[in-house]
Simulated assay, not measured.
Amino acid sequence: MRHIFLIGIGAGDPDHLTLQAVKALARTDVFFILDKNEERQDLIRLRRQLLTEHGRPGHRVIEVADAERDRATPAYTAAVDDWRTRRADLVERLVAEHLGPEETGAFLVWGDPSLYDSVIAVIDEVLARGGATFGYEVVPGISSVSALAARHRTTLTRVGRPLQITTGRRLAEGFPEQVDDVVVMLDGRAAFTGIDPEGLEIFYGAYLGTPDEILVSGPLAETAPRIRALRDEARERKGWIMDTYLLRRSGS
């Protein structure tokens, strides 16, 4: 039977690859790469470097444009569902056309496939349709959340206290109640600048694990303007931003 790996490749440092990921790369015949129109050239180079160093001799790379998602519509959930369906169409076609009956394919996933990524849901949808038959395995990766905590030499959790992981879209509605530690991902609009900073600390990281890494920490009221300025400058210079941060109630 055909087999597919969903391989977490970490937040940007080539050394983030786990031994399990390295072994999966070495077992793969065909790598499927879905590129976004705004794909970052430095991340493309990193991905190709990983394949050169760890891919088996004679492996193939199939690179296609990813499905586009409507980011302007207020109907966020519907837009994501539509995007995943069109992604499933694409993946189903790729597997049918490029993966032989006894071959192994792989999708490389930034960070960890189980944390704010659609690839598992897309693969499940393809299998549910019944047109393609294959087994698949998820290889965990080092997420930007783990990398953030390590680079700031802190822990994500504190004794007896819950941790919440949320998005910038949800943080914009206000700091969550009944929780003191909140990790924020997918924040395209710097939502940390729009909440009450009283009593909050921030541990911020952008381009984690890459030469362009930005790390800032401190009281939110004092550091938010600096982070916003660094973030805007970096986005203007590179054309994209990939950041994560931990907000923590201090002294509680």
Rank of each mutant, 00 (worst) to 15 (best):
S146R: 04
A96W: 01
E125I: 03
G131S: 06
R158I: 01
T157H: 09
A96M: 07
A132H: 08
R158W: 05
L115G: 00
Y116T: 12
T77W: 03
A128Y: 04
L115R: 04
S114Q: 10
T85R: 15
W110D: 11
P74R: 14
I123P: 04
E102F: 10
W110P: 09
I120D: 00
A150I: 06
L94I: 04
A147V: 10
A72I: 03
T73Y: 07
A96V: 07
S144K: 02
T154D: 13
S146V: 15
V109N: 05
Y136N: 02
A72Q: 13
G105I: 04
Y136V: 05
I120F: 01
S143R: 11
F134N: 02
R84C: 11
R71I: 11
L115Y: 03
V159E: 08
V80N: 10
R71P: 03
D112K: 13
L148H: 05
S146I: 11
I142E: 00
R87D: 00
R86K: 15
L94D: 09
S118C: 01
A150Q: 15
L127Y: 02
V145W: 00
I142S: 05
V80T: 12
Y116L: 09
T154R: 15
L108A: 09
R153C: 07
G135K: 06
A106P: 11
A72L: 14
W110Y: 15
Y76W: 06
A150V: 10
W110Q: 14
E103A: 08
R129I: 15
I142Q: 03
L94S: 03
L127M: 08
R87N: 00
H152Y: 09
E103H: 10
T155C: 02
R129H: 12
P113W: 14
R86W: 04
G141T: 08
T154E: 08
V122L: 09
A147T: 12
A147Q: 01
A128Q: 13
A79C: 09
V80Q: 05
E137C: 04
Y76G: 02
T73L: 01
A88E: 01
A121V: 00
H152F: 07
P113Y: 12
V119D: 00
V139F: 07
R129D: 03
A121M: 11
V91I: 15
D124S: 10
A128R: 13
G100A: 01
L156M: 08
V139L: 05
E103D: 09
Y116F: 15
I120Y: 06
W83N: 02
D117H: 08
T104L: 02
A75Y: 11
